[in-house]
């Protein structure tokens, strides 16, 4: 059996050539979906009878939480693939997933805090979701810091992949623990997102936005991966050939 296609999956050059052109279209599509979803959520969705207009924050907050959590699993899967098959591309995907995930987690934290002010009357409440997201933010920060600490790229990649795997095993445990801890202390507040009470007119734009965030995440992952691949392989002939020719057409 011919396994060449499989090894191609690990080649940064192959990936760059395959994705370089259509990633811009994907990006344009993702941004369009985000803008449509935002307008839908801001102006065309009926307001919540309990929370009023502050409810509209859900359309940027919940997708950020969902995608940043899923991003951790994607990062760990890429890291595992890198460890198993020792391929460069998967390590690169893992290494760029960390900053993207960290920024999205931070976005989720900040929007959650701002949402808390009109809903709870305070910016910070040690609610189960917020606490868990904070811990998740620190998991991402740990991986970024570990990556920065090693000089050798390969060592950094393998150490980070290991940490990402350990983190992934721990995430459900941390989530359940924090949830249990929250019910133990039971502060009397209303939850930001109650699953059962959400009406379809409010749910459709939310589903739309979650989808838009996922598509945008995929696009960001591809473009960050390509940029990181170019940086990592800057000494190799294919990157040199791409850019060093000064007579070539202007590089975008």
């Amino acid at each position: 059996m011919n396994w060449q296609w499989f090894y191609q999956l690990g080649s940064p050059k192959w990936f760059y050539q395959k994705t370089h052109y259509w990633q811009h279209w994907l990006g344009a599509f993702a941004l369009m979906m985000l803008v449509v979803g935002a307008i839908w959520g801001l102006a065309f969705t009926p307001m919540d009878y309990k929370q009023g207009n502050s409810f509209r924050i859900i359309y940027v907050h919940v997708p950020a939480s969902a995608v940043s959590l899923a991003g951790f699993y994607i990062m760990a899967l890429a890291g595992a693939a890198g460890l198993i098959w020792r391929v460069k591309l998967q390590y690169t995907v893992m290494s760029v997933a960390a900053p993207i995930g960290a920024i999205l987690t931070f976005l989720s934290l900040v929007t959650g805090a701002i949402w808390g002010k009109p809903t709870w009357g305070t910016y910070w409440q040690w609610d189960a979701r917020i606490t868990f997201t904070t811990v998740q933010f620190f998991l991402y920060l740990g991986i970024i810091a570990l990556q920065q600490a090693y000089r050798n790229q390969n060592t950094a990649d393998r150490a980070c992949a290991m940490l990402a795997l350990v983190g992934t095993v721990n995430i459900p445990i941390i989530y359940k623990s924090v949830d249990w801890w929250y019910t133990l202390h039971q502060p009397a507040t209303l939850k930001l997102t109650e699953k059962s009470s959400i009406a379809p007119e409010m749910a459709y734009p939310l589903i739309w936005m979650i989808l838009a965030y996922y598509i945008c995440y995929v696009w960001l992952l591809i473009s960050h991966t390509n940029a990181a691949s170019l940086r990592r392989e800057r000494k190799s002939s294919w990157v040199q050939a791409l850019f060093s020719d000064r007579n070539a057409t202007k590089v975008t």
């Binding site: 620190f138 740990g142 570990l146 600490a149 150490a159 350990v166 983190g167 721990n170 445990i173 941390i174």
Partner: peptide, 22 residues
Amino acid sequence: LTVALRRGGLLLSLIIMPLYVP
């Protein structure tokens, strides 16, 4: 994970702290 780093102490705390939560 931090054994090969000269000054791994603070990094070690950052890495391990979330895992200690449960």
